[in-house]
């Protein structure tokens, strides 16, 4: 019996995580709505996400859903409980390349990391991928290298 997760989202009322998956035995697409209980507007999102991921009744279904995604969905849920609009909630995950992330609190940083993780997962090569190479080496042609604009201004402080 296997479950191949396709999409995972959130439903505000009642607060739930929604999972669309393929049941690999039957090859049928199914939807599972998991109610989120004991989660309130001051609850800790990473703890709640971890609890859900390890929940005996749901963990089989959520096996392929990364923890950071569950955490992100909990943050969206909690933002809603705190009265934040969905638009503003989602905007808080956006990355500003000039922002100094060293200055963020844990939770704000988790939001940004969540966004980065999406890209990471998209480009990720896993051990069980057929073209996976553990010690992949790539030489980049240095002769074509151009000067990086990051080095131009205030050159003296770097």
């Amino acid at each position: 019996m296997g479950f191949q997760a396709k999409r995972c989202g959130v439903q505000f009322n009642p607060p739930s995580i929604v999972l669309v998956y393929i049941h690999t035995d039957t090859n049928k697409i199914r939807k599972r709505i998991i109610p989120i209980r004991n989660f309130f507007k001051h609850s800790d999102c990473s703890t709640a996400a971890e609890r859900l991921k390890n929940h005996p009744r749901h963990r089989g279904y959520l096996d392929q859903v990364p923890l950071h995604q569950l955490e992100k969905l909990h943050i969206v849920l909690r933002d809603h409980m705190q009265g934040l609009s969905l638009e503003n909630s989602l905007a808080s995950f956006q990355l500003d390349p000039d922002e100094d992330l060293n200055k963020l609190e844990d939770e704000e940083l988790a939001r940004k990391k969540g966004q980065m993780d999406t890209l990471f997962e998209r480009n990720r090569k896993r051990k069980d991928d057929p073209d996976f190479v553990y010690d992949l080496e790539v030489e980049f042609d240095k002769s074509k290298e151009e000067k990086c604009s990051w080095d131009e201004e205030s050159d003296e402080d770097i």
Binding site: F120, N123, R124, K125, Y134, L136, E137, V138
Partner: peptide
């Protein structure tokens, strides 16, 4: 993510 030059 894709492993380029990490092990090296």
């Amino acid at each position: 993510a894709d492993g380029t030059n990490v092990v090296k």
